[in-house]
């Protein structure tokens, strides 16, 4: 595998990951709006918590992905 191949795979995986994160946060925003409409204060808190936890989880996942791809490929 040439370094260019490796770079292309890394870039593709990076964009895929970015799209997944975007989809996740858009879905969560939709849920948040929906629960606000229902006046469900507990439900809103729960979604907000999930969104906050998402940040470290996605950062860890991102580094894990970069590390594993460099080790495997």
């Amino acid at each position: 595998m040439t370094p260019t191949d490796f770079q292309t795979i890394e870039e593709s995986l990076g964009s895929l990951f970015f799209i997944l994160v975007l989809i996740y946060y858009f879905t969560q925003l939709g849920r948040l709006r929906h629960r606000k409409k229902l006046d469900d204060t507990d439900g809103v808190k729960k979604v907000k918590k999930q969104m906050l936890w998402g940040i470290p989880v996605f950062i860890v996942l991102f580094f894990a992905m970069v590390l594993s791809s460099s080790l495997l490929l």
């Binding site: 849920r31 929906h34 629960r35 409409k37 229902l38 469900d40 439900g43």
Partner: peptide, 17 residues
């Protein structure tokens, strides 16, 4: 009436209402 087309929220919304 309650769920507003949110696929992931169906069960939660019905239970909440």
């Amino acid at each position: 009436a309650w769920n507003d087309g949110k696929i992931t929220e169906r069960k939660y919304t019905l239970n909440y209402i």
